[in-house]
Simulated scan of single mutants.
Amino acid sequence: MAWFYLVIGGMLEIGWAVGLKFSKGFTEVVPSIVTVILIILSFYFFSQAMKRISVGTAYAIFTGIGAAGTAIIGMVFLGEYVSFFKILFIVLLLACIICLKLASNQQEQSVRDAK
């Protein structure tokens, strides 16, 4: 369940990061309120995930999901610049997130085996 919470928190991070753009420096009321709600929910799920996942792994994955997702949303929906290298590095970031998850599973299995 912790990994589910971490993914939800990361996805909500995408929402609040994009929301910051639409809030225009918190000068637009409705986007600002939505952004603050998404920030609170994002950190709630992130904190729940850290009850079971180490802080380093959880934070790296949380921010990685947010960074990659926000960059993709920016390119696909907000007309931001797209380049081969930008896509390559987003793919590499996602690959690193997957590898962190796999490495974390191996560590958890080793801890269980030792008990």
Rank of each mutant, 00 (worst) to 15 (best):
E80I: 04
P31K: 10
G19M: 04
L6C: 06
S83W: 07
V18C: 01
K115S: 07
Y44D: 08
K101M: 10
I14T: 07
S32P: 03
E108Q: 11
K51N: 15
Q109P: 01
Y44N: 08
L100Y: 13
S23T: 04
V29E: 00
L6Q: 05
Q107P: 01
I98W: 02
I37G: 00
I39G: 00
V7T: 11
S104F: 07
I90V: 14
A103H: 09
I65M: 10
T57H: 04
T70H: 05
V18Q: 02
G56T: 14
I39D: 04
I37P: 00
Q48C: 11
K24D: 13
A60K: 00
R52I: 03
L41Y: 11
V7Y: 00
V34H: 04
V76K: 09
F43K: 02
V76Y: 12
A95K: 02
R112A: 14
V36G: 03
L102K: 13
K86G: 09
T70Q: 05
S54A: 14
R112Y: 00
F4T: 12
Y44G: 10
S42Q: 05
T35K: 00
L20E: 01
A58L: 05
K21A: 08
G64C: 09
P31W: 04
Q48R: 14
T70M: 11
L100M: 15
Y44H: 12
L92K: 01
A60T: 14
E28G: 02
A49L: 13
L94A: 15
D113H: 06
V18I: 15
G10D: 07
T57D: 01
K115L: 13
L38I: 07
V18N: 02
G25D: 07
K115Q: 13
A58V: 08
G64T: 09
F43S: 04
S54H: 14
G25A: 06
R52P: 02
L94G: 05
F26K: 00
V36E: 09
G74C: 08
G9E: 06
R52H: 14
D113T: 10
T70N: 10
A68V: 09
F4I: 13
K115N: 12
V29Y: 07
I40W: 11
V55D: 03
V111C: 00
S83C: 10
T57S: 06
V76Q: 07
S42A: 13
L38E: 04
V36S: 03
G79M: 08
A17H: 03
V82F: 08
C96Y: 01
G10V: 09
G79F: 09
A114Q: 11
I33T: 06
S47E: 08
F4H: 06
A71K: 06
G64K: 04
T70D: 03
I61M: 15
V30I: 15
N105C: 07
I87G: 08
M1V: 06
I97E: 12
A114N: 08
A114L: 11
W3T: 04
L100P: 06
F84L: 14
V55W: 00
K21L: 12
L20Q: 02
K21P: 00
K86H: 07
I73C: 14
F22A: 03
I72P: 03
K86W: 02
Y59A: 09
L41C: 15
S42K: 03
V36D: 06
F77H: 05
A60F: 14
I40L: 15
R112C: 01
G79Y: 11
S83Q: 10
M1A: 11
I37K: 02
G9N: 09
